[in-house]
Design a protein around this nucleic acid. Structure first.
Lengths: 158, 158
DNA sequence: TTGTTATTGATAATGATTCTCTTTTAATAG
DNA sequence: CTATTAAAAGAGAATCATTATCAATAACAA
């Protein structure tokens, strides 16, 4: 839906540029939050981001993290992975829709490479008459690590 | 992931049978809720279900609807379509994972037929090492009706 | 019909997120 | 470098969908 993968530093620079383009200020707290989200690998929750930011800036309020994440979501610089039961998780590494694979035991979230989904949205648009602006594709299951730890399990949700 | 589409009455019967198999009682309120969910077409929220049930049983508490929906979710007889901003929506017509197309203007939810997604989960399992138990695929956009009403719109989320 | 126990209904509690408001500070111009 | 000013931070209250609690009721098996 737009840019290619890039280094964390490039992503930080992109986010900063986008924020400046929207007349937003770059505060130290905000930059710390950007750095954590730009890494992208672990898809943290707001609370997880807050914990890490506090190492650098111990007085940071969780409201500040919420506000920054919300702002980044508005300007399409972070992808929100929302859940009904758990806290939402955020991906600042790839700020465009992409699939996720989510372990329902340890809640690890990873980005699979799924070539067969090319022009999925175009096909859906053609079949439904919708203008598709976004999609969400999440697979839920048990990751290899958790399978190993606890033995065989199907029907986790039964 | 299991059964084929069926009539509303068949779906109601399936749900009742599943509930009985789990030693759950079939109360009149519950049956009314089942009937609404089994129709499936409009993917209602709990509040919408509650409104309709009250026509038949005016004293029905919304807690009862929440409890019944939660129960049906547990036994895999209803699919939950959860949103961070809106109320969750429910599909009792096809109680197995399937894609949805969601209008971000009028919030209409429909079930597209997308043949190209066959063995999607098998491919993801092969590529990630996960045991996939479930998936969620939602497309967000502007439906044909809303496009017509309000003229051209891309970048709805920008 | 009766007894057991799940369910109902009303309301309180929860928990993630957002809002409010005062204080602080980033960004800019002089 | 300093002053200006509007945005952002921080703390806590408010919100809202959903869940939990619990006494009263009713399904259903015997």
């Amino acid at each position: 839906m737009n840019t290619r993968p890039s280094t964390t530093q490039q992503r930080i620079d992109q986010m900063v540029a986008k924020l400046k383009a929207h007349d937003c200020r770059i505060t130290p707290q905000r930059l710390a939050i950007l750095r954590i989200l730009a890494a992208g690998e672990d898809h943290p929750s707001v609370e997880m981001v807050h914990e890490r930011v506090k190492h650098e800036f111990p007085t940071t309020s969780i409201a500040t993290v919420y506000k920054t994440v919300h702002l980044l979501k508005q300007i399409n610089e972070v992808v929100e992975i929302a859940f009904p039961d758990w806290s939402n998780r955020y991906d600042g590494g790839k700020p465009f829709p992409h699939p996720h694979v989510i372990c329902i035991r340890c809640r690890k979230i990873t980005d699979p490479k799924l070539g067969f989904l090319k022009n999925m949205t175009a096909q859906v648009a053609a079949e439904t008459g919708f203008d598709i602006v976004e999609y969400r594709l999440d697979f839920f299951g048990i990751c290899a690590d958790c399978k190993e730890k606890e033995g065989p399990t199907k029907e986790e949700l039964t």
